[in-house]
Simulated assay, not measured.
Amino acid sequence: MATETTTGDDPDDPVGYFLQDLVFHGKTERTRQSYERVLRRFESFLADADENPFGRSIQPVDATHRHCMAWVHTLRGDVEPSTVATYAAYLHRFYAYMTQVGVFESNPMTLVMEEMDETIDKDPTRREIDVPTMRTFVAELTHPLHRAVVVTLLKTGMRVGEACNLDLRDVALSDSDANEAYDLGSRGELDGRPDSIFVSPEPSFGETSNGEERTASNKRKRATVVPIDAELKRVLVRWLAIRPDAVSPAEPLFLGTSEGWGERLDPEAVRHIVETHARERGWYRTGGGASENVTPHYFRHFFTTHLRDRTGDRGIVKYLRGDVADDIIDTYTHNWGDKVRETYEANIYSLLE
């Protein structure tokens, strides 16, 4: 670490204090560096009376929601909207933690995040990619991890954080050699539901789930069981055949195979994987935004559009996405075998050549 911190309840360097606690929490060096880069940028903005619009130097402990909003505003046009949201989430996590441990009195980012959620375009016009073209894209993914992550997102429509939060217990693969090597699908919710993925609404950023503090949140309104078709099963089995031993006792499904070897993939790593391959395809340009760039969230859009068009059943698509209310989701939960699974398997597109 490049910074030193004090150890009292009123640290002289609150950013350094937070970064040191990330070490104690077992965060990877890459994660700590990402936080440090963002938080030091915010700190410099507050300290520079010529840069911030308030005409005086301000310490992070004294920042209000207006100071935070002003900093977020400076990011727009400089970085992509998705990066603005990521930086804001980092700052929100910093203030939430410092408030929780009693160093700060309040979290000024709470209101900022609420305002941002209201202004984000939920349905931007996006690049249109047909199934044959996406199939060609998938064929170019030779790394078992990269292919498994991308096909999982494309075949299930789950959010990037939800994919990162998957543990081996959440994935049931019937008649597979992987069952000899791993304890797969041990959740009770998967009993009688072979070849399926359980997506829980519970994991939240900074909270502990299955014995591990999470770096991403699931945003589902209710738990969902998503079918695994033959293609997704094939790429998952191939990935599990070379998956390294996990650092975490939670046994994450997707682990790093280069930097962060054996550590749970975080959303930043997945976005990097997708961005790298999308750039090679001409589907990603710095500054391109959601209307142009192919990102993990684009795959959720792809899933929704193509499966809805094929099934004509918005309810099932909403169930699989985890977007529906209790009364609707209960219908599909109780009818999972003959309604959800049959409809899914009859209509899911093919991605493997």
Rank of each mutant, 00 (worst) to 15 (best):
I129N: 00
I129S: 02
H92L: 10
Y97V: 02
D123L: 09
L141Y: 05
L154N: 07
F137L: 04
P108F: 03
N107M: 02
D121F: 06
H143M: 15
R135L: 09
V131K: 05
L145P: 05
V131E: 03
P132I: 03
E162K: 08
P132G: 00
V150E: 09
V149A: 07
D121K: 07
E140G: 04
R93M: 10
V149Y: 09
V138C: 00
T125D: 08
L154T: 11
D123N: 13
L141V: 06
G157C: 07
V149P: 05
A148F: 13
R127N: 08
S106W: 03
A139D: 10
V103M: 03
Y97S: 00
R147S: 12
M116K: 06
P144C: 09
P144M: 12
N107K: 03
P132E: 01
E115P: 11
V112C: 02
F104S: 02
V138E: 03
E105H: 13
E115S: 15
E105D: 12
M98D: 00
V131F: 08
D121H: 07
H146Q: 10
Y97R: 00
L145R: 08
F104H: 04
A139E: 07
V151T: 04
T99H: 13
D117V: 09
G157K: 03
G157L: 06
G157A: 06
V151Q: 06
E140M: 01
L141P: 07
D117S: 13
E114L: 13
T119G: 14
G157M: 07
M158G: 08
I129C: 01
D130Y: 10
S106D: 05
H143V: 14
R126M: 15
E115Y: 14
L154W: 13
E115H: 15
D117N: 13
D123V: 08
M109K: 13
V138A: 00
E128M: 15
T119N: 13
V151N: 04
H146L: 07
V101E: 02
P124M: 06
V150S: 08
L91R: 05
H143E: 15
E105A: 12
Y97Q: 00
I129E: 02
V151S: 05
P144T: 11
D117E: 13
V150H: 08
V151A: 03
F137W: 01
R135T: 07
R135H: 09
M109H: 12
